[in-house]
Design a binder for these strands. Structure first.
Length: 779
RNA sequence: GGGCCCAUAGUCGAUCGGUUAAGACGCCUGCUUGACAUGCAGGAGAUGCGCGGUUCGAUUCCGCGUGGGCCCACCA
């Protein structure tokens, strides 16, 4: 018996049953069913699922469940991106600074707890990964695989160590990659400062970073600028008394400031470009903590403090002409919000410049959904100017499996038969040139290094060749559109171009972000966050999942909608009550084909069309169309019309055709819904249809006959019934009120069956038909 | 400056170029009808951003403009 209402207890029960029965297990031994494998995103282990997770994992779950019903052997693992800076911050806050090995242990402990919490939330949403294949990037075996992948790339000269200016976060005291930068609008000051020209006359230069004066190596102007043409080849004296060359360059904006630029190593990216262009000497003006180097009396001061002090000093000397407020866009570290610097240090790089062409070519061999998604990657590849900095000066990360010689900077890879590599217990190695012990690298990998081999990890690489054959490339990579230039890009580069030569997936499906109801980004400061755990208190998982399906405009951001989710909840109520109606009126299965009536064939035809459309939409990942069509069909066609049409047959007789049709429509509907609303579908499947295994194994419905003639006849019937409903509504009559007679004016006569149905459905005693324009009047 | 996406009732929003432009939320009027008042029936509410073009016919296709959003570059 179906319980009175559809409630959370039903969902919890099914989640438990699925888990106990291993309903979602990938069958490793079955070789008959085609495999559908999903390279699921490993979420960062923050401890809390957010709406973006709910959206993207729902997208994954829909396709996994649909494919299972279609007879695929679905391989749906779930991993965790478990390492990284935010965890270090939290752990340090709680336990203080600890030696690296202990610190890492605390991080692992902490992360385990967070994973457990997130896994519960995923299960509450009804997601169906095969948890036997769970992986965590912080585990030694994962480290081993990442390290092996890097050693292979090192052997192919795709990974190297070099001293080069890199983006640097002084707070994290680590190199960071271009992809980790955010732009922030800031109120800055443009300071106009006096330099001396070759002739001894004042030259005013505008700068936002006077603290870098000591690292000034040139003064730049535009060669077409009449004011400064004569400077070419001359020497300029900085306010600190240093002489630097004046250089003309076309990239200088004549309109900005005074049209002169002081070039420092390194104020920003253009400084690096210009330094190389003119082969200038580099000054290491800043250390790892953002403190000035070789800056005379300001040495050791942090940049902000030094700026103040230098300006005060120059002011006193009368060298500051004016200060102008300026709106600046400043680059900050996306994880901690600290302003980044460019500093020179020894780092490890992966070659993305010479491989860019191959990455692009491989991306083109993958099916992008939606197709314009690839443009995000291509734009990014084409603007790649620097190689990817893969080293981070962190503790909770995968150690880079390399050694280097402090004397000659020669490098060596760790032995691939002795992985995972940890620097504190590394085998000794000797530099071949200097015959001195080499230093094991203590930097860790950028977390994208970890996550860019997930398609390999889930496919058994590098240990299980047979598994690899079966599972690689993955059928699908689902992911957020905002990480195309990181996760998708790095994965195609590493798993595809560098390690296997084969694209990592056949298709990639992109989803957008969930915005707050006001259309803005969800953020703590705006207080507009909607959280899955809050929603789960008021709405069943099957309602939240429908919301996700309805948000399905791919690769597009969409505001969260309480309207959708409320509607979804009432839809569940509708389905539930319809099922209870069927349960009370047609409990028994009917196997032989009864004599169907016009309305039966009509609804079965509608069902056939719906089934065909849903299948087509799902093949294209068009969840939004699928879900809204199911909702409309079930609510309007089935409940509002068909159910009302057959009530008289159910109540007044033992009508096999009606009972057969009701069951058939119900049975196929819950199967079509099952990828989206698995819990309610499962419950009805078991209670009403007496199933003893999961609806996941019930197969995907076949589209039956369309019955086009009956569709035409019933649309006439619908129209007349609607007119009679209007008449009752206008006359304040209940819809079940009996009418003495109805007069129909119609262009064509009605057949006897239609008239008979009409009389019963609308409770009319007499129907009079006359020829003419369509109209209905009652008396 | 470059690229991409978008523009439809108060709000959200709809797959082929073809009658009266879906549907949801909200609003209004009735109905406690033997699945469901978390419901049912009905109603009001849109010059489909502007201007051109293609076409027998454009909300739909194309161009330009305007206005949003996202990404990239630059910001001395």
């Amino acid at each position: 018996m179906l319980q009175q209402r559809y409630e959370r207890n039903i969902e919890e029960r099914w989640q438990k049953t699925w888990d106990e029965e291993g309903t979602f297990r990938f069958d490793e031994t079955d070789s008959t069913k085609p495999v559908y494998s999903i390279d699921t995103p490993p979420p960062f282990t923050s401890g809390e699922l957010h709406m973006g997770h709910v959206l993207s994992y729902s997208f994954i779950d829909f396709i996994a469940r649909y494919k299972r019903m279609q007879g695929f052997n679905v391989y749906y693992p779930q991993g965790w991106d478990s390492q990284g800076f935010p965890t270090e911050v939290k752990v340090e806050k709680k336990f203080g600074r600890l030696p690296p090995v202990q610190f890492r242990e605390k991080c692992i402990e902490w992360t385990r707890e967070f994973i457990a919490r997130m896994r519960i939330q995923m299960q509450q949403m009804g997601f169906s990964p095969d948890w036997r294949f769970e992986y965590r990037t912080m585990e030694p075996d994962y480290h081993r695989k990442v390290q092996l992948s890097l050693i292979k790339m090192y052997a192919d000269k795709l990974v190297y160590m070099s001293k080069y200016p890199v983006y640097w976060c002084p707070k994290c005291v680590s190199a960071i990659a271009k992809a980790e930068l955010d732009d922030v609008e800031k109120d800055g000051t443009l300071n106009y400062i006096k330099f001396k020209g070759p002739d001894g006359a004042d030259l005013v230069i505008a700068t936002t970073r006077p603290e870098l004066l000591h690292a000034c190596i040139a003064v730049m102007f535009n060669p077409t600028d009449e004011r400064y043409k004569s400077l070419e080849g001359g020497m300029i004296t900085t306010p600190l008394g240093k002489e630097v060359p004046a250089i003309g360059d076309k990239d200088i904006d004549k309109e900005f400031g005074t049209g002169l630029v002081m070039l420092c190593t390194f104020g920003d990216k253009m400084d690096v470009v210009w330094m190389h262009r003119y082969k200038l000497r580099m000054i290491e003006g800043m250390d790892r903590y953002g403190k000035l180097l070789e800056a005379g009396e300001f040495t050791g001061k942090k940049a902000d403090e030094a700026k103040k002090l230098i300006l005060e000093k120059l002011d006193k000397e009368g060298k500051v002409v004016k200060k102008e407020p300026l709106k600046q866009s400043v680059k900050v570290h996306d994880r901690c919000g600290t302003g980044i610097e460019l500093i020179t240090s020894l780092q490890w790089f992966a070659d993305i410049r010479t491989t860019a062409k191959n990455i692009k070519a491989m991306a083109e061999r993958i099916g992008w959904v939606p197709d314009f998604g690839i443009s995000y990657l291509i734009d990014w590849v084409e603007s790649a100017e620097w190689d990817w900095v893969i080293s981070r000066q962190r503790v909770f990360g995968t150690p880079l499996p390399f050694y280097y010689c402090e004397k000659c900077l020669a490098t060596a890879a760790a032995d691939s038969d002795n992985l995972p590599f940890y620097p504190e217990k590394a085998r000794p190695k000797t530099c071949e040139r200097c015959v001195t012990p080499m230093k094991p690298e203590t930097s860790t990998c950028d977390v994208w290094v970890d996550s860019s081999i997930t398609p390999l990890i889930i496919s058994g690489w590098p240990d299980d060749e047979k598994r690899m054959q079966r599972l690689y490339p993955a059928s699908l990579r689902p992911q957020g559109v905002e990480i195309v230039r990181t996760w998708a890009f790095y994965t195609i580069f590493r798993s595809g171009v560098a390690l296997t030569g084969v694209p990592p997936w056949k298709q990639i499906l992109l989803n957008g972000n969930v915005l707050a109801t006001d259309g803005k980004k969800m953020s703590k400061s705006l207080g507009n966050i909607v959280s899955p755990s809050d929603l789960l208190r008021d709405y069943p998982a099957d309602a939240i999942r429908q919301w996700a399906a309805l948000s399905g405009a791919m690769a597009k951001d969409r505001p969260f909608s309480y309207e959708d989710i409320k509607y979804a909840k009432s839809f569940l109520g509708k389905v539930w009550n319809a099922a209870r109606f069927v349960e009370s009126s047609a409990k028994e299965d009917i196997r032989d084909a009864p004599a169907l009536r016009m309305t039966d064939r009509w609804i079965l035809g509608r069902l056939a069309v719906l089934t065909k459309e849903c299948t087509e939409h799902l093949e294209r990942f068009e969840y939004h169309y699928t879900m809204s069509k199911i909702q409309r069909f079930f609510w309007q066609d089935v409940c509002d019309n068909y159910l009302e049409y057959v009530k008289y047959r159910i109540y007044e007789g033992d009508d096999r055709a009606a009972r057969y049709t009701l069951r058939k429509v119900m049975y196929d509907s819950i199967r079509l819904m099952a990828p989206f609303t698995p819990h309610i579908s499962e419950e009805i499947y078991h209670e009403l249809f007496g199933a003893n295994e999961s609806i996941q194994k019930a197969g995907w419905p076949d589209a039956g006959k369309e019955y086009k003639d009956d569709a035409a006849r019933v649309s006439v019937l619908n129209e007349i019934v609607s007119q009679i409903r209007q008449h009752k509504s206008r006359n304040k009559l209940p819809q079940n009120a009996e009418l003495e007679s109805v007069r129909l004016s119609l262009p064509e006569d009605l057949d006897a069956e239609l008239v008979s149905e009409l009389k019963q459905i609308s409770r009319v005693k007499n129907v009079v038909i006359v020829k003419g324009e369509f109209s209905v009047s009652a008396g």
